[in-house]
Design a protein around this nucleic acid. Structure first.
Lengths: 147, 147
DNA sequence: TATTGTTATACTCTATAACTATA
DNA sequence: TATAGTTATAGAGTATAACAATA
């Protein structure tokens, strides 16, 4: 199937295809844990930001409050995290439970192996370049864009 | 919200975040057309592979026959493509209609502008490097992997 | 007034399973 | 037997809208 110059020349398309390949492999690496890569990310964020609330978690994942709620419910039901009293009566403080810590470590091991295999064709220097360039993809504020 | 070294060091995570940023912007750029970036991709593939069947289109998009069916139905309903008799009686030959051609051109213009804005921080050389590195992300066949 | 959590509902995208017609 | 299209159904992930409690 021809892809043509129109698709090939779009960086967004290339990023999307690369992401799909990476994600499929990472998902397979996590199959034993019944958690998607995104849910592993949530666990790591909760671990590294102990006591954060659901809304902040959602912001970090680029999902809204309601979606974050659903995600947190799933992780709570699996016994990986816990809702504790937060900084005021509206707010939860999310905490990773011991079982969650163990699971995060195991999942990270599996995902790191996937990541290493998928990036094996790149040298250490190329990897650093790739990460640097990816980090610079983003909107550039235009003339009238500031408020 | 701290992201921590565990996430930062995963190339898959960086690709996913970059893809999300690119996709949000491209989707916004296509808002006038009521078609997602993926549907635009489908139109381009049909245009550049006139007469292809649904299964081949699905393969190119990494979706299965059934999902490709749904996608094709939507594009047909919008009057952008057409199912024509294929190479045998089982098969459709997909064809972009004149209205679809006009629409693809307009959408490409919008998406190219989005892509240009999102990559504006990178030089031409850096862009080429990025595309090259992205293209090399993928599984490396291991010892016992061949059949 | 603004924010957090919550619930109900709906939409998009994809998948599986089964069927029909054709090869 | 295998393949293409089709249909019904289901699941994951996300969103919007509304509400209660709290700030």
């Amino acid at each position: 199937m021809k892809q043509g110059v129109d698709l090939q020349s779009l960086v967004g398309y290339q990023v999307q295809r690369a992401n799909l390949r990476m994600e499929v492999d990472a998902r397979a690496a996590l199959a034993d844990y019944d958690l998607s890569p995104a849910k592993m990310t949530a666990l790591i964020l909760i671990r590294d930001n102990a006591g954060c609330d659901q809304t902040a978690l959602g912001r970090a994942l680029s999902i809204n409050r309601s979606s974050a709620m659903k995600l947190v419910n799933i992780l709570v039901d699996k016994g990986l995290i816990e809702r504790r009293p937060g900084r005021d009566l509206r707010t939860n403080a999310l905490a990773l439970l011991p079982r969650g810590e163990v699971q995060v470590e195991a999942m990270l091991k599996a995902v790191r192996a996937s990541d290493a295999r998928m990036t094996a064709r790149l040298s250490a220097e190329e990897l650093e370049t790739l990460q640097h360039l990816l980090g610079r993809l983003g909107p550039v504020e235009e003339e009238g864009d500031a408020e």
